[in-house]
């Protein structure tokens, strides 16, 4: 058990670090892909098989592809400076914050109301069945709202990314240079 966890966790962290530090953007996307896969594995270890599947299908299969599409549309040149000029300050600040966060988390007590869905129950009913029952009974409203939300997002994306209609004597929007 431990071995699996260590493997998944280590690779996730490494992938995450790579994502934020690689020069080429496409390489970063690939690292992200790796991260997503290993997080799905962690989900499986936590008895959330359905979620693992959703993660791979939606996150890795749709969102990441979207990123890759846009990256390829950009046709970016690999630049010399991929990090900010003063990135070291922020790096160290972030590290400090991480250490502090870890200490805090380790020191704080964990508690909470124990629910009723023990792993045996989930195994008995099947993971997707369990998820479905909970969603369509306790979280029905949220489900609907998320549906509308996604609709809004789709419409918004279409409106934003539309090629503006050419009118007489209109030039493409010129952003004022500072």
């Amino acid at each position: 058990m431990w071995l699996l966890f260590i493997y998944f966790a280590t690779v996730s962290v490494v992938a995450g670090v790579l994502t934020v530090s690689l020069r080429n953007a496409v390489h970063c996307a690939l690292a992200l892909l790796t991260l997503l896969f290993h997080i799905a594995g962690l989900f499986v270890m936590l008895n959330a098989e359905f979620l693992a599947a959703v993660q791979i299908i939606v996150y890795a299969g749709a969102i990441l592809i979207l990123y890759l599409f846009v990256l390829m549309l950009m046709n970016l040149k690999t630049e010399e400076q991929h990090l900010h000029k003063k990135h070291s300050y922020l790096l160290f600040a972030g590290m400090g914050l991480l250490a502090e966060l870890l200490i805090l988390l380790m020191l704080s007590p964990y508690g909470g109301r124990m629910g009723s869905a023990t792993p045996e129950v989930v195994l008995t009913t099947g993971p997707s069945h369990a998820v479905g029952i909970t969603m369509f009974s306790d979280y029905l409203l949220l489900f609907e709202i998320v549906g509308v939300f996604l609709l809004g997002a789709v419409i918004g994306a279409i409106v934003l990314a539309k090629t503006p209609a050419k009118t007489e004597n209109q030039e493409p929007a010129n952003f004022p240079t500072p």
Partner: peptide
């Protein structure tokens, strides 16, 4: 998992949905 509740998984599901929407808008 450790609190034997389904609420966490639900929230994770919704978060994935929201992430998708946000990615779309951001890229647009």
């Amino acid at each position: 998992h450790y609190l034997n509740s389904m609420a966490g998984q639900m929230s994770a599901l919704f978060i994935i949905a929201v992430a998708a929407a946000e990615a779309a808008i951001g890229l647009a």
